[in-house]
Design a protein around this nucleic acid. Structure first.
Lengths: 176, 176
DNA sequence: TATTGTTATACTCTATAACTATA
DNA sequence: TATAGTTATAGAGTATAACAATA
């Protein structure tokens, strides 16, 4: 069945395909070569998820660009920030708090430890777990990251408006 | 250098590691076994990107769950919606409009075509491109998807409040 | 038995580059 | 030469399962 479809697709790509007159629907502009600028999205307007997805893409791209000089990505920043504010946390605790898989946190911490920003110290009370701390270098670096992150937040404010940014933070406060 | 770090990590995992008294910082609770419920996030509050990321995770999970019976994911929904509202679009036009890679759209359309929701029809004017249309079955299915998506939007309204949802859509209108 | 950190696997998504057939 | 669709590959990100050490 999959091969059937493949065949029909290939056929459409290379040679004549069934051109059905049936397809003349509501919004009908039958053949358009436009580049996507004037395409009606009516049906997606009013969908919160779509707007939020597009916004998230923009905001992460700006964050990554703004912190490109220090090569820190949003998740790395959030990990260092939480450890900095709560030294001694276990990996499980950090993973749960940030909603990331503990398996993934292992690799994130590997890279942060290689760069000497974070250290895993044997827990005094539970020999299974590590107490996470920023190194001296990590604390200095985080201070710089925070200055760049603040610059990124200013970009957000410029993009959607200062008041709108604050309204947004209020509305979404229940998700932090 | 990487191997050095690996070694130190392994050592920390199995045996005694350097426990530095240095690490006693501002917020200091040195050893905590808690499960992540009462961890201060102070430093992440006020970061739009973090709030938006958490919200996006929630909203996509709810969308996927609400449309699980019809096995349609957010991106598939957006593709069918745009094609339904603009029949005859090329793949490039759809990709550009939705901000997805044209290479990825190929596979998305493959699966939608296999399920007989969408058809690629040879363009009358440009033999390189395909005109995209919903099939009859696709139009019927999309109507049902839209009913389920509306249910999902009600979940969003319940979660953050009806007025807040509308404020959010206004604020993010520039990203659609 | 259950949990912590770890490794491994698979699947989605994103980002590229290259190939073909057309323009 | 450039563009549309396709294929392939590599990197993040997510979701699991399993394992050793420890509780």
């Amino acid at each position: 069945m999959a091969s059937q479809q493949k065949t029909s697709r290939k056929a459409a790509g290379t040679q004549a395909a069934i051109r059905r007159p049936q397809a003349r629907a509501a919004n009908s502009r039958s053949q358009r070569g436009d580049a996507g600028d004037d395409i009606g999205l009516d049906a997606l307007v009013g969908h919160a998820g779509y707007a939020v997805r597009r916004f998230q893409l923009w905001i992460f791209q700006d964050f990554i660009k703004t912190l490109a000089t220090v090569d820190i990505r949003p998740t790395q920043y959030s990990v260092m920030t939480v450890i900095g504010a709560n030294p001694g946390l276990s990996q499980m605790a950090v993973a749960k708090r940030l909603g990331i898989e503990r398996a993934r946190l292992v690799h994130l911490l590997d890279s942060l430890e290689e760069r000497d920003f974070v250290s895993r110290i044997a827990s005094a009370t539970d020999r299974r777990s590590h107490a996470l701390h920023l190194t001296a270098r990590g604390r200095t670096a985080l201070a710089q990251f925070k200055r760049l992150a603040a610059e990124h937040e200013r970009h957000v404010a410029e993009k959607i408006g200062k008041e709108n940014r604050e309204r947004l933070l209020q509305i979404l406060a229940c998700f932090t």
